[in-house]
Design a protein around this nucleic acid. Structure first.
Length: 428
RNA sequence: GCCGGGGUGGGGCAGCCUGGCAGCCUGGGGGCCUGUGGAGCCCCAGACCCGGGUUCAAAUCCCGGCCCCGGCCCCA
């Protein structure tokens, strides 16, 4: 009975994982250089952790089930809620600001599509207890620098907005929770559907005048943020948010990021209160990462009121982009494969291999047995070994090893006592 | 939820319209090679998603089902 992976889940194979771990390590290095330290939270969380900050409909896109005690539990769909929860409980023990990062798998019950899986990998960071513009800019820089360090810096672009601008307008109009997120959803559609369609949608929700006022926001895409000012006249909170947007924008530009103001960018999450951003790379049609400021979340989980900002990177998508763009991680040959002329030397080869391994050198031999020397050499070549040692009666008798370098295709004799030094020199 | 494209050896495909011995590439095992030449030549193993129907005959035509991929919606 053949059994395969569940829909939307994948097996990750060595060639893929090699690239994946490389990207992951670059992200970790970026985070650590900025002073972030790793935390790990549970894969399974109480459903309420996610319920509180979104409507009920998010349950559809999550793995939710009952455990044996009848509790409603969920596979984590993201990390931010967990870290905010963690901070709410433990934050008092740490000097502020707290800087945490994570790497892990997350789960979403969506219909799988290109680069959309039901289990995928995120690396991200949260900065809690700081609200300066530089805090947001630093979080953005983590995305920017990761893309740069995996070779995607060329066409990288950060789209930036501040949801406080539009949220303040809506609040001034008395537009409430459910209605608010419907408005935001429409705005988010800009760039995906016809402008006139969005206009119609907003007018339906808010009326002609207010709708067109909102549309006035989007026209300054990419321009100087101060151009938004006239549009916002009369909305106190919006003006403040705009000022913050300008400062974050300037801070990000000051450290060399390519940033584009995108007033219709609102992101799906309801918990964002200020800065929001997404990271893109030219020719890749979806965001490789994103994040923003969520100043209310920690308090919602019972912690002290705490300003916070964070990001997450879609590792799978970045790996895909790296491959797509041909930045390609180079695979290097390594280690030693010991090939034997005849089966009766296998024990001797095994002893040699184990001693090499003990000395810290990657080594292997043909464990199938009964294979010609040419087959063993071919195997060593095709599976990426750097050296082949040909072990036969002649070598044993003379106390030497015949070592072939599969990179240069050169071959030479090394005396038994000199093997370790020779290999170490070559493999380093 | 809606709309497309597909299910044929391990992977990727052709064959289907026009029913008649199931083919190619790659990967796997082996030989040429009685001691290694990244190659070449040769050999071997391995498949028509499931269930009905039509037919002398079904991978091919018809009906039903299941599954996969992609697009839309959504996307924490």
């Amino acid at each position: 009975m053949p059994v395969r992976t569940l829909r939307g889940f994948r097996d990750l194979l060595p060639n893929y994982l090699e690239d994946f771990r490389w990207v992951e390590s670059r992200a970790r290095a970026v985070f650590e250089r900025a002073g972030y330290r790793e935390v790990l939270t549970p894969t399974v969380e109480p459903f309420e952790l996610y319920e509180e900050k979104e409507g009920e409909q998010i349950e559809e896109s999550m793995f939710v089930f009952e455990d044996k005690a009848g509790r409603r539990v969920a596979l984590r769909p993201e990390f931010t809620a967990s870290l905010a929860r963690l901070f709410a409980f433990m934050g008092g023990e740490f000097k502020l600001p707290v800087k945490w990062y994570y790497v892990g798998n997350v789960f979403r019950y969506d219909e799988p599509q290109r680069m959309r899986y039901r289990e995928f990998w995120q690396a991200g960071a949260e900065l809690m207890g700081a609200s300066t513009p530089e805090s947001d800019a630093e979080i953005m820089s983590l995305a920017w620098n990761t893309l740069r360090d995996v070779g995607l810096g060329e066409g990288a672009l950060i789209r930036l907005n501040n949801v406080g601008i539009v949220k303040s307008m809506l609040e001034a109009w008395g537009v409430s929770g459910e209605m608010q997120s419907r408005v935001l959803t429409w705005m988010d559609k800009l760039g995906k559907v016809e402008r006139s369609e969005v206009e119609r949608g907003l007018a339906e929700l808010l009326g002609e005048e207010r709708g067109s006022r909102l549309m006035g926001l989007v026209d300054v895409e990419g321009e100087d943020p101060s151009e938004l000012e006239p549009v916002l006249r009369g909305f106190e909170g919006s003006v403040e948010a705009l000022k913050n947007l300008e400062e974050v924008y300037d801070a990000a530009r000051a450290v060399g990021m390519r940033v584009r103001l995108t007033p219709f960018l609102v992101r799906g999450l309801a918990y964002y209160t200020g800065t929001v951003f997404e990271a893109f790379v030219e020719d890749i049609p979806y965001a490789l990462g994103g994040g923003g400021r969520y100043d209310g979340l920690v308090a919602e989980y019972g912690g002290p009121p705490t300003p916070a900002t964070g990001l997450s990177l879609g590792l799978d998508r970045i790996v895909d982009a790296v491959r797509e763009k041909g930045v390609r991680v180079k695979r290097e040959r390594s280690g030693v494969f010991v090939a034997v002329v005849s089966d009766d030397l296998r024990r001797r080869a095994f002893v040699l291999v184990e001693s090499l391994r003990a000395a810290g050198i990657r080594a292997d031999l043909d464990l199938r047995g009964g294979r010609s020397l040419s087959k063993q050499a071919e195997y060593a070549d095709r599976t990426g070994w750097r050296y082949v040692i040909f072990l036969g009666p002649k070598e044993v008798e003379r106390g030497v090893y015949v070592v072939k370098d599969l990179e240069s295709w050169e071959q030479l004799e090394v005396p038994e006592g000199g093997l370790l030094d020779f290999l170490r020199a070559g493999l380093d």
